[in-house]
Design a protein around this nucleic acid. Structure first.
Lengths: 304, 304
DNA sequence: TGCCGTGTTGCAATATGGTCAACGCAAGGC
DNA sequence: GCCTTGCGTTGACCATATTGCAACACGGCA
């Protein structure tokens, strides 16, 4: 859109930190770009960038401007979506940032269900750890985020909170597979496929293990649930996953809840940027996920 | 600002309903204006106006677009205010819509106090009845509204609610001036200067009078408190006003509360458009008014 | 029918924004 | 110390988009 071009330029330069790099990406010459920015700064009455020998960096005013620009751009997208909605065609795009736990099963399933009804809506899925998922939402990179135990952040507004037990994943013929729920100390008697430090449940586990002062036999540690699942399925090794992250078709894997006395319930939070209005498509998608999680795992809280 | 020009054009045309009128106001030719709008519509992929023989009218998409534009424009103003705030200069503009009751004393006083500290902030005061004040806020014409008994509207977000008694206004030597509080039936034994139907307190009075089934001797009715006050001061006539609307320097007027058994407390509400972020200047002004009303009249509720 | 008003269009003038080449400057390698 | 390399910026020139002017097409109205 024409009237947003300058804003997009500034956004890009702020991101790349260099006029020349941005100029290439935007396929114009650096001189044209520098003029656009100078004109904008002149109109605004304040510089927005600091010119360093290594490139451009936003100054304090620029940070405000960038926030404004991001808001404008996403607002405009929302407008388009609303207008498309008027003509009966449910059209739009939804970007969701999610914890890896849900990347395998839950999110693809929900997207498939949604797109079965609204084929003109497209999706972007960013798989991020809980910290970066919330950051993506704050930076207008994602409309919503579905994360485990998000760090407290004032700009992150929970739309749905579900408390879930952590589960131990093991093969069907594992000695512990007979029990319905497990104590942590039972589990730790066996070799463990440990989630890596970037995964939210690692911190929860770590805390419980330290509290219980139990020794751990970690045979493999990975930041990828893919890897952890494979190990738990292949060798007689135990891994962990939050309930909603357990694949429906689990092969020869079974999941057993860890007793809540050992591990507190885990928060699964679906949230957005506070104060932002979601597009029609995104808000319908949120509704669908909320309903789906609710019927599958029971009463989540819906703040708001 | 360049990148907002098209948006402002659309806003103006939507308001005037005519390309030629708007073209004159914007000091460009109608042809330039019509092309701007056509280009915008082409970029958007949808017409925004309906072309009628009598002029232009927004269609459904246009209504959405207009809301978006208003939000953009006011957002940009807020951005400028925030940036000005960065450089230490508290600069900005605040538009407040207010009931007539406060136009005489309260608002001018508060503005004076505010400007004593922040001389670079300017003000617009729109005096509107409660319905139109809320509408002005919803249409981005006013940042905040201070009104009596605002109609319930989802987009109007109260920032401060104070309950106040209605008072009878009379000259110092009126027979009823001796009492501290008055029953409605005492008051109605005397001739009344009745607030006009556009004033919020008229409805409250009317309700109470009907409930009590009392006869009223209305000698003058006016939509202007100025007129009502003069009458109450001159002849031996009683008028009405909410407590916070009573002038500090009242001349030979005195105010006596009406017993709460006869007239319920009146809501005085300071509010803004829900979901909108106020400029720095506006939000400081709100804080000041809230504090001022609080210390003068005691505990108002502050939702949120 | 003739006269208003409306928005729109063709064409020429103009402003806006673009490219290209050159410049000033600071940092890093030798 | 000098040279190279990267950065943003500037001046001259040019293409394109935007504007103004005049003419047009259409609907309402007397």
């Amino acid at each position: 859109m024409k009237h947003l071009k300058t804003l997009q330029c500034i956004d890009d330069v702020a991101g790349s930190g260099s006029i020349r790099r941005s100029a290439e990406r935007l396929s114009i010459t650096p001189s044209a770009l520098t003029r656009r920015i100078q004109d904008f700064e002149a109109e605004l009455g304040t510089p927005v960038f600091e010119r360093m020998p290594q490139g451009m960096r936003l100054n304090a005013a620029g940070e405000l401007v960038l926030r404004h620009i991001r808001a404008q751009l996403s607002d405009f997208e929302r407008l388009r979506s609303q207008i498309a909605d008027l003509s009966g065609v449910r059209r739009g795009h939804v970007t969701i940032a999610t914890s890896q736990a849900f990347a395998h099963d839950l999110i693809p399933y929900e997207i498939a269900v949604y797109r079965a009804q609204h084929a003109l809506v497209s999706f972007s899925v960013l798989v991020r750890d809980h910290i970066h998922a919330v950051e993506a939402v704050a930076a207008f990179e994602a409309d919503v985020a579905l994360v485990i135990a998000p760090p407290p952040a004032p700009e992150f507004q929970p739309l749905l909170v579900i408390h879930q037990p952590l589960c131990a994943l093991m093969s069907k013929d594992h000695p512990l597979a007979a029990a319905r729920t497990l104590r942590l100390r039972e589990v730790l008697e066996y070799p463990i496929a440990m989630p890596g430090p970037s995964l939210a449940i690692r911190h929860l586990l770590q805390g419980a293990i330290v509290r219980a002062a139990l020794p751990v036999n970690t045979v493999v540690e990975s930041d990828s649930f893919e890897v952890l699942r494979s190990y738990a399925g292949g060798e007689q090794v135990i891994s962990f996953q939050i309930r909603a992250g357990i694949p429906q078709a689990s092969g020869n894997l079974v999941a057993r809840e860890i007793d809540h006395r050992d591990l507190p319930m885990t928060q699964l939070v679906l949230g957005q940027l506070r104060g932002r209005s979601l597009s029609v498509a995104a808000s319908k998608f949120v509704d669908q996920i909320a309903g789906s999680l609710h019927t599958r795992y029971g009463g989540g809280e819906r703040p708001d």
